[in-house]
Design a protein around this nucleic acid. Structure first.
Length: 683
DNA sequence: TACCGCGAAGCT
DNA sequence: GCTTCGCGGTAC
């Protein structure tokens, strides 16, 4: 994607033209390639380059590229990775010998090393920061155990590809899978359709068919999903759909041993299919043929550690470097995925309008005019037509109610002047945990029995946000014969994963919606303004993503499935939901970003830290034409933030300039730290 | 002449 | 980050 492919040993920072000398004679001690170029494990921006060490005759056989070694660096033992072996060095002093080869297993393959370099350059970070995300810590006993099982190497075995039907309903879908099976590497952005009822192949069947086709071409598969639970669901589906094919799961929360075991099995070719969370984008699958990312708009796919790479970008870079196919799928379409389609780099795979109508529920977003006709009920959070929808749907099956916030009344305000009620200790927002409970602070937990408004003196409170628990209570009162289920990431209840086909009301926060066997008969999406109306660049797309995820759990209109979007949604994502048109939404959103010169139509980075640190970095920042600096402006009490922007064509120059500036700061030992985030998550 | 403390330099 | 180097200082 326009990113330069740079050899691992040539960092972006310094174009060095230094005299090279051949290491020979006594120094080489009979070793043919006596120099090991080592990436040393530390994260100093100005030392983001390999260092040369001497390989002793005893280390010669083991110290192959990719192996983990221990070296003396600045007087201290550190681990590192051999990037390559060479006969020459550009270092003038005598080379220090490698202290020890930790293991002969080459854990940092040339492909993954090159990917880490590309990711580091893309995000203005250092190679080692990325390698730490890509290569899990060694677990010696596990390594030994897995290597003893290497006999079962599967590379070369080829599963027969039995064409399925899961892609037939997508225009270009069957061709996509056919090309995978033929060993080609097509790139697609796929708008998945919900599937309910027996015999209708769902998104998991589509992913499994794409995987099977890739395996049939003799290549491996990487599937990245946002959450551990999603990984389990997809892993189970692939295991069932690919008999005899081991599917490994790679998740940070599996613990060091299990994680390293999965990693080594892929590395040695004992398994060639992996499903996992964001770090799995780096999984060392041999001869990788297909890279899949499900729901790439989920911000869980953005790594929270420097340099903050997003799994979608990692896979995109990897597809380009390794010549693999890419499949970005989801109910919605992220603006970033839309850009890949707009530039022609990836194809759009969607269903025809007729198929969309056939597979999706009927969706309404009653506007103000409709509601005005309802009289006083219109002002309510759940107006009369919505109660009607729930009542009728419950005759045939379960109903989902999506509420943006958990809790009872998570935000309360003064009845008199509507000022938000705040904690007297820490000024955090007050909440009510239940109908009769005492107000308490959401930040410090301190209860406040005697609250009175500091502005107008009133002691009466009103709800300014209604949470899922209160919503569940209201629905329970309205439908006393129907069970109510609450689902959300909270200590007092937790996430429910699945409900059966019986009539019940399920109240869930976004992302915690249980799957209903056979699909929900209806759904209400409440308080639509809460997300879609936020003054955040990502608000409309995030809102649509959440709404589509809930609507995808509802039966099609032909079976009476209905969805109602309530609470003053922003019109553009609201209409995109009603028309079930995520591709059109992404296109429109992208056009707007182009116009406003905002990402992903331009490259943007945030630079945050103390005022002097940010000023220092900006002073060192080279600003070629087209690079623009906005700010700095205060970010918090102690910190300021500046935004740096360029158009996409200048993107790699911008990130290189940022890395260079950070390197200069680091070399000068300027005080305080700066946090550089390319593609900042919040704008 | 030996040794400490401190700041700067450089890390193969 | 970390160590080490080299300087000027002081004590013996």
């Amino acid at each position: 994607m326009g990113a330069e492919v740079r050899p691992v040993h040539q960092p972006a920072l310094l174009e060095q033209t230094v005299a090279v000398r051949t290491v020979s004679g006594a120094e080489a001690a009979g070793v043919e390639l006596p120099v090991a170029r080592v990436a040393v494990d530390m994260s100093l921006p100005h030392l983001d380059r390999p260092f040369d060490y001497r390989v002793t005759p005893e280390q010669d056989a083991a110290a192959q590229p990719g192996t983990r070694v221990s070296v003396r660096f600045a007087g201290k033992d550190r681990t590192g990775y051999v990037l390559e072996r060479a006969a020459t060095t550009d270092h003038h002093g005598t080379l220090m010998p490698l202290r020890r080869v930790v293991s002969a297993l080459p854990v940092l393959t040339p492909e993954i090393a090159a990917l880490c370099r590309a990711v580091a350059d893309r995000y203005a970070g250092s190679l080692m920061d990325v390698v730490r995300l890509a290569v899990p810590p060694r677990h010696a006993t596990t390594e030994k155990a897995v290597l003893e099982g290497t006999a079962a190497d599967r590379t070369g075995t080829t599963a027969a590809h039995l064409p399925g039907t899961a892609w037939d309903h997508y225009v270009g879908g069957a061709a996509y899978v056919r090309r995978l099976a033929a060993g080609e590497s097509p790139r697609a952005v796929w708008s998945a359709l919900p599937a309910h009822g027996p015999g209708v192949p769902d998104r998991l069947a589509s992913i499994a068919e794409a995987a099977a086709a890739t395996l049939a071409s003799g290549r491996g598969v990487v599937v990245v999903v946002p959450s551990a639970h999603e990984a389990e669901v997809v892993e189970a589906a692939l295991t069932a759909a690919l008999p005899g094919e081991p599917v490994v799961s790679l998740q940070a929360d599996h613990g060091p041993s299990r994680r390293y075991r999965a990693f080594v099995r892929l590395l040695t070719g004992q398994a060639r299919v992996v499903v996992g969370t964001r770090a799995a984008a780096f999984a060392p699958v041999r001869r990788v043929g297909l890279l899949v990312c499900w729901d790439d708009g989920d911000d869980l796919l953005a790594e929270p550690r420097a340099p903050y790479p997003h799994a979608r970008e990692v896979l995109t870079l990897r597809a380009a470097q390794e010549g693999a196919a890419l499949l970005l799928g989801g109910w919605t379409r992220s603006v970033e995925a839309g850009l890949l389609v707009a530039t022609g780099w990836a194809a759009s795979v969607t269903a025809s309008r007729a198929t969309v109508r056939e597979r999706t529920p009927r969706i309404e977003a009653p506007g103000e005019i409709d509601l005005a006709r309802e009289g006083p009920a219109a002002a309510a959070r759940i107006p009369r037509p919505a109660w009607e929808l729930v009542r009728k749907a419950l005759e045939k099956g379960p109903v989902l109610v999506q509420v943006p916030r958990s809790g009872y009344l998570p935000v309360v305000a003064c009845q008199g002047c509507r000022e938000p009620a705040r904690c007297r200790e820490c000024h955090g927002p007050l909440q009510l945990g239940g109908r009769t409970s005492v107000p308490s602070c959401r930040w410090c937990g301190r209860p406040d029995r005697t609250w009175a408004c500091p502005t107008c003196g009133s002691s009466a409170m009103r709800a300014s946000r209604v949470g899922s628990a209160r919503t569940a209570e209201e629905l329970g009162r309205a439908f006393p014969k129907v069970p109510v289920v609450l689902s959300g990431a909270r200590a007092d209840h937790g996430v429910v994963r699945e409900v059966d086909e019986k009539a019940r009301v399920v109240v869930a926060t976004p992302g915690a919606e249980p799957v209903a066997r056979g699909g929900y008969q209806g759904a209400l999406l409440l308080d639509a303004a809460a997300v879609s109306g936020r003054q955040d660049l990502a608000a409309p797309s995030e809102a649509l993503r959440r709404w589509l995820a809930a609507a995808a759990l509802v039966r099609p209109a032909s079976e009476g499935g209905r969805v109602m979007l309530l609470g003053d949604p922003a019109p553009i994502p609201g209409q995109a939901l009603v028309r079930w048109d995520p591709a059109g939404f992404a296109e429109r959103e992208l056009a707007e970003r182009h116009e406003l010169h905002l990402p992903p139509a331009s490259r943007m980075a945030s630079v945050r830290g103390s005022a002097r640190a940010v000023a220092g970095l900006l002073r060192h920042l080279e600003r070629p034409d087209g690079v623009e600096v906005l700010g700095p402006v205060p970010f918090s009490e102690e910190e300021v933030q500046a935004l740096v922007r360029s158009d996409l064509g200048q993107g790699s120059r911008l990130t290189r300039a940022l890395a260079q500036a950070a390197a200069v700061r680091s070399a000068h030992k300027e005080p305080d730290s700066v946090r550089i985030q390319v593609d900042p998550t919040e704008l």
